[in-house]
Amino acid sequence: MSEDIKAGVVGLGKMGVAHLAILNAIDGVAVVAVAEKQRLVRKALGSVLPGVNLYSDYERMLGSEDLQAVFITAPTALHVRVAQDCLERGLDIFVEKPLGLSGAEARHLAPLAAGNDAVAMVGYCKHFVETFREAKCLLEQESLGRPLYFSSHMYVSQLFTVGSGWRYKKESSGGGVLNILATHLVDLLLWYFGDVSKVSCFTRSHYSAEVEDFVHAYLDFEEGPSGSLDASWSVRGYRLPEIKIEVQCENGSLTVTEDYLKYNLDTDGSSRTLYKQDLFEPVEVYVGGAEYTREDRHFIDCVKSRRTPETDIACGYGVQAVTDAMYASAEAARLVEVVPL
């Protein structure tokens, strides 16, 4: 058996804790150090995992520990800086989504990762949800034909008063519901349909002073369909974040959410619904969502075999280029071309 990969975690928010717990429970990896600014959180962790070295400052952690991989789960504004410091030391990185505050900020990471022969993954975990994965397979088969048009949304009932914390400050989050949440949806659309050429986007704020609470956009794919994206964290009736994508293809249609996948074929008039129960694959340990375990396992496997992860930096760039164009379009109130990074 090969030795465990020594990993560090930077930032113990909700996702940091989830990754830490998963990594602690699965084989092939050992978390040896954690950097977290809040003393209360460090103290709590110290009593639970006394074997892990705790730091208030991630740079000290990188300087003192002999790590192979780092999970970057700090607020978005820190992603690129921490990623750069890790890559310069030749460490492999897993960065939570989104990659950074903007494409310009993150532009140097891919050459840096390539130059240091590092494995770098961005946490676009929806690739690891069974229904979305199955939809990708179906769209690649010929039976549905070419995708022509789509409509899509991502909603959650989260913010109905003035929000506080880093998510609602533009300088630490890079934006509101689009950058924090709907980047998952942008990522899926890019995965399904390729590159976007042009976007037209409108945003609106009601609860947040600095960032957007509502997004409505039109996306035109270079060699794929065009369609709409709606996103908000202030919509009622969505206890959990929900993504829904409906695609009209040449020979039928397809609808996919986290819960189910439904498709109709004109050729034989057939219609089929696959629930997540039909597609269910168990995981070695379940903490808050099977997709988190799968993405962590994928990253660890890639580190061991020196493979490029499925959601690599290029994938992070793709999303960043589209969201940058969406913000630019909303600000200029016109159609904007997407500039690849």
């Binding site: 717990a21 602690n24 429970a25 009593s47 639970v48 995992l49 340990v285 808050g288």
Partner: peptide, 10 residues
């Protein structure tokens, strides 16, 4: 499940 994964027996 978080406690189990972290080994938080106490």
């Amino acid at each position: 499940d978080l406690s189990l994964a972290l080994g938080a027996g106490e």
